[in-house]
Nucleic acid binder design. Structure first.
Lengths: 202, 202
DNA sequence: AAATTTAAAAACTATTTTGGTTTTTTAAGT
DNA sequence: ACTTAAAAAACCAAAATAGTTTTTAAATTT
């Protein structure tokens, strides 16, 4: 891991905790245990830093995805394991980070986040197709429509007012939202596995 | 239909088209073909007008729902017919109207829209339960969780950036989002009907 | 141990952002 | 049409912050 990567790895976490708008370069330098000078030797300015952090976290996600695919695992395993991970981590901080970028760094948003989203949709589409060829999902689905819907659905559980003021947990909501949607995509074969999973996880 | 109801009926449409924030009382009076004086004889102020318009449109929806229920129709018919209507009307204007109320008339939002939403969720929950007792939906579902999720899901199709910049229609998106989610809720019996419907509507 | 390199700390400036004030415009209500 | 209240815009001063430069300290090399 290069110095630059270390900085990005560190700073992404900082951004997720504190947001990127109100965080100052002094604070970032302090958080990384270095002087501003060193920071500026690695990144031309704050925009550059944020942009590269976004790209970096996308790379991490992508490589995790690739290793999942490469492992040639069963589609349903990938799905349910990913699902378990998704509602254990704090998706909402990532989402509000993204929202802040859109609002206060529109250039970065246009250039970077859009393509990150595209990448995400591409992954989803590939997974979907894999599931179809393995016989878990019904055939008459257009991946170009379903994939962005999936991205959107995942966002709601974390983001919306669904959980606020009600007596349901985020993981409960996530399950009923995402798992039920996936159940809607399944064939008999896939449904069995999801129903089994739900039986063991309620 | 009383004068007051006529005004509300008219003004709701106006609000849906133009929003309620920037529309002036002068414009509303003109739109209704009356003087401001007549308007103010029926509503104490703009807040009152907006509040009553919200309640009125909710009443309309509710009575349509009640007549559906009263007709003792098959659950799946209600669902699929309602679904067809939903993606033919312009849900998005209703949603942005609601958003404007939340933003600029928070008092009305707290007092009125919240209970409208509650009413909507109650209807959804009732429909869900009906569907369960009729054997279309799986049993192990908590209506208090599913109902608000359904409301939320319907919003996405109309509202989000899903349809923007992509080559898919809103109705296509709505179908793949809402119908697939419902499909996820179904038993064998309900699934047959949805699959039949999808076969005839693609 | 002196010299050299490296990076942190601190100091500094030039922009940006923010908070508060006044003026102007808009729109409610009579 | 008129009055009044409230919202928006324009404006300014003060604070905060990005980015640069200088100084200090510590590690490394010779």
């Amino acid at each position: 891991m290069t110095v630059k990567e270390k900085i990005m790895d560190n700073t992404v976490n900082f951004f997720l905790k504190e947001g990127c708008r109100k965080v100052t370069m002094d604070e970032i330098a302090a958080y990384n245990g270095m002087s501003k000078r060193t920071l500026y030797e690695n990144f031309t300015d704050k925009n550059d830093l944020i942009r590269q952090c976004v790209l970096y976290s996308n790379e991490l996600e992508k490589s995790s995805y690739l290793s999942n695919i490469a492992s040639q695992e069963d589609m349903m395993d990938i799905l349910l394991r990913g699902h378990e991970r998704n509602f254990s981590i704090d998706l909402s901080s990532m989402i509000s980070f993204m929202d802040e970028v859109r609002k206060y760094f529109p250039d970065i948003y246009r250039q970077t986040i859009r393509e990150v989203k595209e990448a995400h949709c591409t992954m989803m589409a590939e997974l979907l197709t894999k599931g179809q060829t393995e016989g878990y999902f019904i055939k008459n689905l257009d991946a170009r429509i379903i994939a962005p819907i999936l991205s959107e659905i995942m966002k709601i559980a974390a983001h919306s007012e669904l959980t606020q003021g009600r007596e349901m947990s985020q993981s409960e909501t996530y399950k009923m939202l995402v798992l039920i949607y996936f159940r809607g995509l399944t064939t008999e074969k896939g449904r069995k596995i999801i129903d089994e999973f739900m039986k063991n996880n309620n």
